[in-house]
Design a protein around this nucleic acid. Sequence first.
DNA 1: TAGATTGTTAATCGATTAACAATC
DNA 2: TAGATTGTTAATCGATTAACAATC
Lengths: 266, 266
Amino acid sequence: MATGRTERPAHRGRGIPEATVARLPLYLRALTALSERGVPTVSSEELAAAAGVNSAKLRKDLSYLGSYGTRGVGYDVEYLVYQISRELGLTQDWPVAIIGIGNLGHALANYGGFASRGFRVAALLDADRAVAGQRIAGMVVRHMDDLEQIVRDDGVSIGVITTPAPAAQGVADRLVAAGITSILNFAPTVLTVPEGVDVRKVDLSIELQILAFHEQRKSSTEPAPGPAPVPAAVTPAVSPAVAPAVTRPTASGGDLGGDLPEVMPA
Amino acid sequence: MATGRTERPAHRGRGIPEATVARLPLYLRALTALSERGVPTVSSEELAAAAGVNSAKLRKDLSYLGSYGTRGVGYDVEYLVYQISRELGLTQDWPVAIIGIGNLGHALANYGGFASRGFRVAALLDADRAVAGQRIAGMVVRHMDDLEQIVRDDGVSIGVITTPAPAAQGVADRLVAAGITSILNFAPTVLTVPEGVDVRKVDLSIELQILAFHEQRKSSTEPAPGPAPVPAAVTPAVSPAVAPAVTRPTASGGDLGGDLPEVMPA
DNA sequence: TAGATTGTTAATCGATTAACAATC
DNA sequence: TAGATTGTTAATCGATTAACAATC
């Protein structure tokens, strides 16, 4: 229950920074957990800790939405849940279509997380006629041929692409042609879309590769990439003279393995 | 095959910016596609277009790895694939363990993308004894009790958490205790880990919420959240008097559903 | 040499953070 | 009032980008 507090949309209308928008869902999740535990208010310090961010950042982020806290007290949990939900557009229903019912599409269709929080799986689609017609998560998979009609009839506003990489761009084109302006892409491809269409991607192998980069730096105790401090004054002018020892005529034949790693087969 | 070019590790040893590290996999993917098409060289302009970034950014990113291009010519595709792979640590094998074999864990286990590119699913684990023992993607699911032994025996360095949210922190703690220092978290929870442990997260509902935010701004032509300009002087002093109509005592009871998004059932 | 394209500089932009005045 | 905590300022940091000298 919010104490009858007034709102000042402040920055509203223009310009909540992208970095802030990306964190609002985290705050919302932390607040929802607090709400379920019956916690009435939180300080920025507590909420920041729960969301895994710095409290100054949290306060700055929230200040873009308005002045929803009370000095000396903190934030009313329910009230802030509402305000963030509204800002994110979660007070309305967002019908989502999942395109490409393979392993991942199947898993997402069964994923409970959609239903709550304003999202609703409105349709499952696949280009394979053997897949279309199957019943998954209580829904009948439709064929891609019906895409335009489904988007129109069900008011689908967000498309989730879970096709193999080679099919993704074509699907994106059709989604855009059908009027969809928000796409969540799970296929490992860069999608090209017109201005005004938002694409976000979820990319497993990119995340793994970033982890591998850091993991490599940890385990290796070699002077260069390791956590070693700057080796006693590497004078810029000197390095060219120091470097030649590292110079290699070609990348192949080293102990590094001359072969370039093959990427995903498909 | 690289043209006999010399290498200058330049910035190496310390500090490739995180933003750059996060893009290297994109470049690698684009380069691999070019390599498969037999393209021998690319300009920064072409490669940047393929990766969906600005060419100045690409050149700056690559400059952190060294001087691997040729002025007036461009980059040797094979050579650059090799250099980026090496930088990311993909010239070695990274055994991965997937913990939590529900919908998503199952899908990931069957996902081909792992195997290529230096990653290898070394083990599948689940806390449920009814799941352990099952055969999935040619592997027998092991019970969580065996975690420590598996990490040790198989040299697992990366843990992928696909458990329900409430179980994730406990699993993370055990992974860390077992010596794992890189975690990819699919559960919608903030994980707390010691210094030196890297956590990256993949979060479907956060991505959807970010899309919803932008989608809302597009479709709504309402004055406040829409793309409308600042409505004729919203004097700060006045807003408290204007706002009360929007003030609501509580957020619950709405269509928001007070529920936190449940993750995959298992 | 003339044309092309890299690698780097420097300016700009946006995000983070500590600190603190405002205020409950 | 005294204590607590927000909302905001300003300094800092890091990332992006245009522009161009270096050089193949």
